[in-house]
Design a protein around this nucleic acid. Structure first.
Lengths: 221, 221
DNA sequence: TTTATTTTTTAGGCTTATCTAAAAAATATT
DNA sequence: AATATTTTTTAGATAAGCCTAAAAAATAAA
């Protein structure tokens, strides 16, 4: 049985290396978990010893099959709980992250099976993030592109926001960006990489790089 | 913010002293939490310092108002989650204890409010245990008596099982004892304090003291 | 009431997960 | 290629929550 802490390390290693599967640095993990790099070094030794990561000193880290399996299961639980909170308990999408961070560590396979069934076997969570199935397979999203990478006059239907922090989601609420909304690129501003967009053919606004790179969708027209 | 561990100490102190509100011994806590009495002594010092318990060396322990409030909230959460697991996710009543032990520590007032509402403001959990409301008030159960205390020929309708361990509950399933079932005392056996009972006017069996003292209900006739 | 037993506390240790400071390795710059 | 900078690791500490063994206090028995 892994500790809450160990699970969080595996999760963040997975998230930082998805979908590229490249090696992750000690510093990246430290920054993301808000802890000291020295602490990360200690933990990496321990996770390697448990055969959950591949790790050689100074060389970065990646998940073993076993480590990946655990990480994906945590993410599955996180996203199923977020779906429950929004769909069943009527939370808004910006309120659920912190609660799901706790719920994802509840240990019970039967619970997750039953929750999954109760929710109707959802494939995506309320932010559009894909929910891996019981075998760790993610639903198909290969036709999704990043808003950030769209050219002028291209238009997407929003499928996913790849960050469930309440700050970002509240901001998106304010400018009426939601899953399903249509966004057209009106202008690309090279100096700060921001873009001017038209939301649902009505509302014009400017999105900073920090925001546009977190919005994914399918190309329209 | 209290740790998971501190919350468990407060919870067990509450449960051991309910409803009598008498002082609890270090040993009782140790046995119930399956840890060493020395560890309990350490923790009691800490909880006293945080003003959550009244405690003087060698004199036993009781909850302060603040401590009681926290303990009752944990119990509230435990019982609401058990209700959710049984009523919403179709768990059987003997499967939910261990999962609720984890879920009771999830921190979010809003979550509990919303869960409470979703469940229809239940007053009792699937084992008939009273669920305290948001002010920490328990629903009325003063007309409930222990099966153990019934005299020969008295009959009760089962309202509550005061132990949600799966061992006991599976045993009760086996002999068809459930909430709502009627149990009549046929004979009291003084040598081992067991009783012979008739369940739902059909099935006769013998209940040991260990079982009968955990069954509560209202007197019929 | 004195002695024996049980309960509780203290003292000293261990493990986990964190920290800071310093050393070592890798990477970037001149 | 030599030096400077950044990243990573090691070394040594700390706090939480547990342990065992021994001492102290309370309770029960003789």
């Amino acid at each position: 049985m892994l500790s809450y802490t160990e699970e969080n390390y595996l999760k963040i290693i997975f998230i930082l290396s998805y979908p590229t599967a490249k090696e992750i640095s000690t510093n990246d993990i430290a920054k993301n978990l808000n802890i000291n790099a020295a602490s990360v070094s200690d933990m990496l030794k321990k996770l390697k010893q448990k055969n959950l990561i591949d790790y050689a000193k100074y060389q970065g880290v990646s998940l073993t099959q076993e480590g990946r399996k655990i990480a994906v299961n945590i993410i599955r639980k996180h996203r199923l709980w977020e779906t429950f909170l929004v769909n069943t308990l009527n939370f808004s999408w910006d309120e659920v992250h912190d609660i799901a961070e706790q719920l994802e560590h509840i240990q019970s396979n039967l619970l997750i099976e039953k929750l999954y069934q109760f929710l109707g076997f959802p494939k995506f969570d309320p932010h559009g993030e894909p929910i891996p199935d019981e075998n760790g397979t993610f639903p198909e999203t290969k036709d999704w592109i990043c808003l950030n990478s769209c050219k002028k006059q291209q238009k997407i239907e929003v499928k996913s926001i790849t960050d469930d922090s309440s700050d970002l989601l509240q901001h998106l609420d304010k400018i009426s960006v939601n899953i399903g909304v249509k966004i057209e690129v009106i202008e690309k501003n090279s100096y700060d990489k921001s873009i001017d967009v038209l939301i649902n053919d009505i509302k014009q606004c400017t999105l900073s790089k920090e925001i546009s790179e977190k919005i994914y969708g399918v190309l329209l027209d």
